Simulated scan of single mutants.
Amino acid sequence: MSGTRPAGSSSAGGPSAVVDTETERVVRRWQQLPLDRAGTAYPGVREVVQDLADAVADRTGEERAGVPDLGPGVVVDQLRVMVYDWRQAGLPEADLAGRLTALRRSLP
């Protein structure tokens, strides 16, 4: 694919820049949550991680598999991995940006 940026690179104002910004906002917000609020929000974050993993599997022709439940301390790292995988699979950045924005807004 000529003329495309490497996965994870951003252009000012484009969907990739929004993905980068929203990913970091989710991570920062997650790190600021008190433990009880993180516990309440955790299932929703795991659901997004699994949804991204399923979309990547569907796109790449792999069999869907459950993302391991490694707890609230690791879930944002899993999210970052899924963002990377999404990009590597060539899925639409705008869709990912929307999902991340919705996730951030859902956090208490």
Rank of each mutant, 00 (worst) to 15 (best):
S2L: 15
S2E: 13
G3L: 08
T4M: 14
T4V: 14
T4A: 14
T4D: 06
T4W: 10
T4K: 10
R5Y: 05
R5L: 15
R5T: 10
G8V: 12
G8E: 12
S10W: 14
S11D: 11
G13R: 08
G14W: 12
P15R: 05
P15K: 06
S16D: 11
A17L: 05
V18C: 14
V19Y: 12
V19H: 13
D20S: 15
T21G: 14
E22S: 08
T23V: 09
T23P: 09
E24N: 10
V26H: 02
V26R: 06
V27L: 13
R28S: 13
R28F: 08
R28W: 07
R29W: 07
R29E: 05
W30D: 02
Q31I: 06
Q31F: 07
Q32E: 14
L33Y: 02
P34F: 07
P34K: 04
P34W: 05
L35Q: 12
D36H: 14
R37N: 06
A38R: 13
G39V: 08
G39E: 07
G39F: 08
T40R: 15
T40S: 14
Y42A: 05
Y42F: 07
Y42R: 06
Y42E: 09
G44Q: 02
G44M: 01
V45T: 04
R46C: 11
E47S: 15
V48K: 08
D51Q: 10
D51T: 09
A53F: 04
A53G: 09
D54R: 01
D54I: 02
D54Y: 00
A55E: 03
A55H: 08
A57R: 01
A57D: 02
D58Y: 06
D58A: 12
R59N: 01
R59E: 01
T60K: 02
T60W: 01
T60D: 04
T60Q: 03
E62L: 13
E62Y: 10
E63M: 09
E63K: 11
E63A: 13
A65I: 03
G66K: 11
G66E: 15
P68M: 01
P68T: 01
P68I: 00
D69A: 07
D69K: 11
D69I: 08
L70F: 03
L70E: 02
G71Y: 03
G73R: 15
G73H: 12
V74W: 11
V75L: 03
V76G: 13
D77R: 06
Q78G: 03
L79H: 00
L79D: 01
L79E: 00
R80M: 05
R80C: 10
V81E: 12
V81R: 09
M82C: 02
V83M: 09
Y84C: 06
Y84T: 15
D85W: 06
D85G: 10
W86Y: 08
R87D: 06
R87K: 11
R87I: 06
R87Q: 10
R87W: 05
R87S: 10
Q88N: 06
Q88G: 10
A89I: 01
A89E: 00
A89G: 01
A89N: 00
L91K: 00
P92Q: 07
E93Y: 09
D95E: 13
D95H: 11
L96Q: 03
L96W: 04
A97G: 15
A97F: 15
A97S: 15
G98T: 10
G98H: 09
G98L: 08
G98R: 11
R99D: 02
T101P: 08
A102L: 15
L103F: 13
R104Q: 07
R104G: 07
R105W: 09
S106M: 15
P108Y: 04
P108R: 01
P108G: 03
